[in-house]
């Protein structure tokens, strides 16, 4: 018990230290790297909080995609020579006050827990057997609160549409302006040939294992997206134009299948997004597979950014 405590305190101190250094960093590049490190350390913290599902997501999003996105932004700023956007003192001060207030409020709330800590966890586990799932998180996402999960995926598509709509009209239907690695590099090519097969196996594994253990469509999709980006950055595959006929069907296949199964539930089971008895698990796995693909493509394109060049015929 005490070793756990020592480990946890050490971890927390380290995370706080990284957080402070990230905020204090004067240079955008250093701040981004601090933030990536912070994310990776957080995934260890989530493991210690027994939230392995969240740890997986944090490792994939915080370690991979966020760093990718933000470093891309830093590079763009440098390229445009606009790295010195100064934020006025009052705004900084207001931000600090707001953050301090939120932190204080959270501290009050967390440090004065209710007498009995109520939880739905036993109820979740009790009813989980009906669906044949083993992972309670998957149960919440795809059985009890499937409506939220379904609509969150629509949010993802809207976010992508928002990014696309930033482009000038002339390049609509064109190619996202992902910063690819300009110089031919044998090292990078080697990595981009070797890592993706491994990554795809990991993604399939993540998606498959999600039904009974931590994992699932989001983690699997993030891995897929990262592998795709790697291949594009290394120049092995071109960034696709958004007019490609395969692209949009892949983006919506997950939510569409989810929605279709949900609607079928109105007829074949008792309600919208209810599963017919005995078919819950296979249906959920099917939804997860489709969602993994959609999330992978969506995250990859989100990281690839707004359109920059018109499509070459």
């Amino acid at each position: 018990m005490t070793i756990f405590a020592v480990f946890d305190i050490g971890l927390v101190v380290l995370i706080l230290g990284i957080a402070v250094s990230t905020i204090a960093a004067r240079d955008a590049f250093a701040a981004v790297i601090g933030f990536v490190v912070y994310g990776l350390l957080l995934s260890i913290a989530w493991v210690r909080l027994a939230a392995v599902d969240v740890a997986l997501t944090e490792a994939a999003i915080g370690g991979g995609m966020t760093g990718m996105l933000m470093l891309g932004a830093v590079a763009r700023l440098r390229f445009a020579g606009g790295n010195d956007i100064s934020i006025s003192l009052p705004v900084r001060f207001a931000t600090a006050v707001l953050c301090a207030l939120v932190a204080a409020g959270l501290a009050i709330a967390v440090l004065s827990p209710p007498d009995a800590i109520p939880t739905l966890a036993p109820m979740v586990m009790e009813n989980l057997a009906q669906s044949g799932l083993g992972n309670p998180v998957a149960g919440v996402l795809f059985v009890y609160r499937a409506l939220d999960t379904l609509l969150e995926k629509v949010v993802l598509i809207l976010a992508l549409l928002g990014v696309w709509s930033l482009a000038p009209d002339s390049v609509w239907g064109g190619i996202p302006g992902l910063r690819v690695y300009a110089r031919r590099s044998s090292t990078l090519t080697f990595l981009a040939q070797l890592l993706p097969p491994v990554g795809i196996v990991v993604a399939i594994y993540m998606c498959w294992v999600g039904a009974k253990e931590p994992g699932g469509a989001f983690q699997g999709g993030t891995v897929l997206a990262a592998m795709w980006l790697l291949v594009m950055i290394a120049g092995l595959k071109r960034v696709p134009s958004i007019g490609q006929p395969w692209l949009r069907p892949l983006l919506v296949v997950g939510p569409v299948i989810f929605l279709a199964i949900g609607l079928a539930g109105m007829v074949l089971a008792n309600a919208f997004l209810a599963y017919p008895p005995g078919y819950a698990k296979p249906l959920i796995v099917a939804v997860e597979v489709a969602l993994t693909l959609s999330i992978g493509v969506a995250l990859g394109l989100l990281a690839a950014g707004p359109l920059e060049q018109a499509q070459q015929q």
């Binding site: 493991v47 490792a59 994939a60 370690g63 470093l71 990078l188 983690q219």
Partner: peptide, 27 residues
């Protein structure tokens, strides 16, 4: 808790990925 191994797997997978992003964005 065997699932924690999967977190390590993702960290390993993404370790080089982050470096690629770093190098791509480096001045």
């Amino acid at each position: 808790t065997p699932p924690i191994v999967d977190v390590a797997l993702l960290l390993a997978l993404f370790a080089s990925f982050a470096a690629v992003a770093f190098v791509r964005s480096a001045p």
